[in-house]
Amino acid sequence: MSVIFAKSKGLTDQETHYCPGCTHGIIQRLVAEVLEELGLLGDTIGCAAVGCSILTYNYLNIDMIESAHGRAPAVATGAKRVHPNKTVFTYQGDGDLASIGTAEIVHVAHRGEKITTIFVNNAIYGMTGGQMAPTTLPGQKVTTAPGGRDVAHSGMPLKVSEMIAQIPGAVYVERVSVHNPRAVRHAKKAIRKGFEYQMAGKGFSLIEVLSTCPTGWGLSPVDSLTWLQENMIPYYPLGVFKTPEEAK
C-alpha cells in the first residue's frame, strides 16, 4: 500500500477562507508540497500580497510577511538582501501584481532578484467583489465593466508572463494552469523548478498560474474550470517563456 496523496506538512490545520471551488487552494497547496519536498519549510520566507491571497500566511506552515498592495516583490527584495541563503517567494494575484504592483514586479525581475513569484491570474479582483483587472478578458462581465470589458475603452488584457520574460534578469517564466489533474501535476513541476532555480542562484522566476474565481465569474466551480479552459487559455497560452539557458 502506498499513500498517493495526503495533506502536505507545509499546510497548517487552518481551514481556508476561499470560496468553495476556488483554485487558490490548489495553488497554495502546490507551493506547500514543493517546499516540503525540497526540505525548505524551515528556511523559507514567504511574502503574501493583498487580495484573496493575503491570508496565505494562515495556511502555509512557514514564516511569512504580509505586504502592502502590489509591494510584495519589494518586501521580498528586502528579505532576500538580509537573508541571501534563505528561500524567498511572493504569492500574488493579478489585481496585486498586474495592476498596482507592475513597477515592483518589473524591477524585481530587472534586478534579477533571486526570488520566486507565484502569480495567480484569475482575470478579476476577487477579494473586493469582482471588479475589472488588467487581466480581465475582452467582453468578460465584471462589476466595473457591467457590459463586459470594452477593449476600446480599457485596452486589451495584460500578458504578464510574456512581458516579464523580456527582462534580462528573469531566468524562468512559465504559464501553467490548474483546470484538470494533469495541469495541476504540471503546475507543480513548474513551481518546483522556480524554487530550484532560486536555490541554484540563477535569478528571478515567475510562474503564472491560471486560476478560477467561481464567485466573481458567477459560475459553478466545475463550470469555472471549463470557462478557464475555453476562454483564458486561448488568450493566455500555457508554456515556458524563458529558461535559464535563454537568459544567459
Binding site: 505586504s67 519589494a74 527584495t77 515592483e104
Partner: peptide
C-alpha cells in the same frame, strides 16, 4: 540598494526589517 521608487524603497525597508535587518 537603489530602489525603483520611494514606494519600493520603503517596502524594501519593511521586508528587511521584518527579517531582522
Amino acid at each position: 540598494l537603489q530602489a525603483e521608487s520611494e514606494l519600493a524603497a520603503i517596502n524594501m525597508v519593511y521586508g528587511a526589517a521584518a527579517t531582522g535587518g
